[in-house]
C-alpha cells in the first residue's frame, strides 16, 4: 500500500504523460494485488483487466492523439487546491476515528446484511461464489445499471468521436502502424501473440462460464475477450481486426447484450415474479436462479466485450 502511495505521488510529480499512464497502470496492478490480499479476488481480477489493461490502452491512445508532455505551468502550484485537499483529507481522517478497526470481525457491516448472503445464498441461489450470487441476483439490478453505464459509455464515445469525416485520415492507425513495423519485424512477438490470442479468447470463455463457481464472470470475461481483439489489432492491424468483427456487428452485439439482460428480467416479470426474479424461470428455485444468472452473465459478457471493442476501435480510428 505504501508502494501505491509512492506511485501516486510520482504520478502527481511526473510531467511525461506516457510515464504517468504507465505508473497508473502499475498503480492498478498493485491495487489488484492488494485486493487479493484482502480476499476480493473477483475485484482483483476486474481491476487488473480494467485498470491495468483497458484504461491504460485508452489513455495511451489518447496520448498518441494529443500530446505526451505536460506543459510546465508558469504559475506557481495553486495553493488553494493544496489547502482544499489537505482540509478534505483532515476531515476524512477525523471521520476515521470512530471507524471499526481494520479487519474487525465485530464491525457492523459484517453483522447486518452480509451474513444472510453467506449463510443462505447456498440454498437460495445454489452457487458457491457468493460475489456472483449477490452481483447477479440479490443486487442484480445494480449490475443491470452497471451494464447500462458501460453501454452509455460506448454509445457516448461513438457519438463524440465516432465517424470522422472521410478523406483526411491520418489516424492512430498510422501510429499503430509504425509500432507494427517494429513489431512485425519481431517474429517472436507475432508468433507468440498468434498463439496467445486463441488462448486468451478461450480463457475468456472459461472465465465467463466459470464465474458461478470461482472468481470471474461476465465482466471479466468480456474484458479479457476484448483484450484479445485489442492485442490482435495492436500487433497486426486495426483494419484487419475490423474485418474479423465489423463495427456493425459489434454494435448489434452491444445492443443485444443489454437487451438479453433486460429481457431475462422481463421474462421473470412475465412469469409472475418481479423484475429480475430468476426463481420463476424454472420449476425449481435454484435451477431458475442458475439459468438466470447464466444468461445475464452472458449478456454482461457480450455487452462488455462489444463495448470495449467499440470504444477501442473508435479511439483507434481517430485522426491525429
Amino acid at each position: 500500500m505504501v508502494f501505491m502511495a509512492a506511485t501516486s505521488f510520482a504520478v502527481a510529480r511526473l510531467r511525461n504523460l506516457f510515464g504517468v499512464v504507465m505508473l497508473t497502470g502499475i498503480f492498478s496492478l498493485m491495487s489488484a494485488v492488494l485486493y487479493v490480499v484482502l480476499d476480493a479476488v473477483d475485484v482483483a481480477f476486474t481491476e487488473a483487466a480494467v485498470g491495468a489493461g483497458i484504461a491504460t490502452v485508452l489513455m495511451l491512445g489518447t496520448l498518441a492523439l494529443t500530446t505526451s508532455e505536460e506543459r510546465v505551468s508558469e504559475a506557481g502550484k495553486p495553493v488553494w487546491a493544496l489547502a482544499l485537499v489537505v482540509a478534505t483529507g483532515l476531515v476524512l481522517i477525523y471521520g476515521t476515528f470512530d471507524m471499526p478497526p481494520f479487519g474487525d470481525p465485530y464491525a457492523p457491516i459484517h453483522h447486518h446484511v452480509a451474513p444472510r448472503y453467506l449463510e443462505k445464498s447456498g440454498q437460495e441461489i445454489g452457487l458457491p461464489n457468493v460475489v456472483t450470487s449477490v452481483l447477479a441476483s440479490y443486487r442484480g439490478y445494480d449490475t443491470l445499471g452497471e451494464v447500462f453505464v458501460i453501454f452509455t459509455a460506448a454509445c457516448g464515445v461513438l457519438l463524440i468521436i465516432g465517424r470522422p469525416k472521410r478523406g483526411r485520415r491520418r489516424t492512430l492507425r498510422m501510429k499503430v502502424g509504425e509500432m507494427r513495423h517494429g513489431m512485425r519485424q519481431n517474429v517472436i512477438l507475432r508468433v507468440v501473440s498468434k498463439l496467445l490470442i486463441p488462448f486468451i479468447l478461450v480463457f475468456a470463455l472459461y472465465v465467463q462460464w466459470h464465474g458461478d463457481f470461482g472468481p470471474g464472470g461476465g465482466f471479466q470475461a468480456g474484458i479479457i475477450f476484448a483484450s484479445g481483439f485489442i492485442l490482435y489489432a495492436l500487433i497486426f492491424d486495426v483494419d484487419t481486426s475490423r474485418m474479423v468483427v465489423p463495427s456493425g456487428v459489434t454494435r448489434l452485439v452491444l445492443a443485444l447484450g443489454v437487451m438479453l439482460y433486460t429481457g431475462v428480467g422481463v421474462a421473470g416479470l412475465l412469469r409472475g415474479g418481479n423484475f429480475l426474479n430468476y426463481s420463476v424461470l424454472a420449476e425449481e428455485q435454484t435451477a431458475g436462479q442458475h439459468l438466470g444468472i447464466l444468461l445475464i452473465e452472458f449478456g454482461v459478457g457480450l455487452t462488455v466485450a462489444a463495448a470495449m471493442i467499440t470504444i477501442f476501435y473508435t479511439f483507434a480510428r481517430q485522426e491525429h
Binding site: F148, L252, T262, G265, V266, F275, L276
Partner: peptide
C-alpha cells in the same frame, strides 16, 4: 403491479433498440 419496474426498464430497453 409491475409499473415500478417498467417505469425505468422501458426506457432502458428502448435505448439499445434505437441503437439497432
Amino acid at each position: 403491479a409491475q409499473y415500478p419496474a417498467l417505469q425505468v426498464v422501458l426506457a432502458l430497453l428502448a435505448a439499445p433498440v434505437c441503437l439497432i
